[in-house]
């Protein structure tokens, strides 16, 4: 279930003086079951890029291949693609609309042509995986707290049983515990269902913790696409693009400067703990 972008460009007002590239000549391949963190400053083209991956936006140049097939070729089954590539927008809870939670989550699978029974079965499974208990199934989604609304909205996409799950800042506006819960849930889906995940985030710490690979966009261009370890080696460069490395990576530099030698590319609390204990001979 690989996704491959080839020389992808998206241009606003092409051919006029206002011509602007939202995405410029981006190529990459995301292998089956990879967890990718997509980072970039506001306006770097992250949201534009992900909307190409399930065909919501049509590129000005280049194309996207899903399992080797050009998704923008004539006659390609876009509807089926949207069942394979699920996209969770920013603040997805604004898109809840049904009278009760279960019906809301059933909407996606029904739209893909599932029978009521199958849709219900899938909705229940998705809600359970997203940590929404049965007691909430027949409540109005609008009565739920922000964190639960967000889960229900994500369950709506999971119920379509996509192979690739793309989430645009799924933790924005949540409290720390809510953030951990949502990220933990995504991480579990990734492991248990071998789902490919593309997570758009502003938090370097979150991305460092969960992603196998990190994609960095700057003004629509692909700057890095590598493991967190390699990407965070470029801390100074990231900063010049309005980003930053995780706090722990900066700590590594400070510690090394102070004569406590640790791995300069450590990026998570767990790694730092091990490295520091080792350096102090504990």
């Amino acid at each position: 279930m690989s996704i491959r972008a080839e020389n992808l460009s998206y241009i606003y007002n092409e051919g006029t003086v206002m011509e602007t590239y939202a995405i410029r000549d981006v190529s990459f391949e995301i292998g089956d079951g990879t967890f990718v963190g997509l980072i970039g400053h506001t306006g770097s083209g992250k949201s534009t890029l992900i909307q190409h991956l399930n065909g919501l936006l049509k590129p000005s140049r280049g194309t996207v291949y899903f399992n080797g097939e050009d998704i923008f070729a004539e006659g390609y089954n876009m509807k089926a693609l949207r069942g394979h590539v699920g996209l969770v927008f920013q603040y997805p809870e604004y898109q809840l609309f049904e009278e009760d939670v279960l019906t809301d989550v059933m909407f996606g699978p029904k739209n893909l042509g599932c029978s009521d029974d199958v849709a219900k079965e899938r909705a229940i499974r998705a809600l359970t995986q997203c940590g929404v208990d049965e007691g909430r199934f027949d409540r109005s989604p609008f009565e739920l707290s922000g964190g639960y609304k967000r889960r229900v909205a994500i369950a709506g996409v999971i119920a379509m049983e996509p192979d690739v799950l793309i989430l645009d800042e799924p933790t924005a506006g949540l409290d720390p515990h809510g953030r951990d819960e949502i990220l933990g849930m995504i991480s579990r889906l990734h492991k248990e269902r071998k789902m490919t995940v593309i997570l758009v985030s502003h938090s370097m710490d979150d991305v460092a913790e969960h992603a196998d690979k990190i994609m960095v966009l700057n003004h629509g261009e692909l700057l890095f696409y590598d493991t967190p370890r390699e990407v965070f080696k470029h801390a100074a460069e990231l900063e010049s693009y309005g980003l930053s490395a995780p706090e722990i990576t900066y700590l590594a530099a400070d510690l090394n400067a102070a004569g406590i030698s640790v791995d300069p590319s450590m990026s998570t609390i767990e790694e730092a703990k091990e490295e520091i204990l080792k350096a102090l001979g504990r």
Partner: peptide, 23 residues
Amino acid sequence: LRRLRLSVPVITELGYELKQAGL
């Protein structure tokens, strides 16, 4: 703070973890 669904800054958490490990 954890019980209250909050967290601590990353560096504070690392300090706490290291202390738990005996430093």
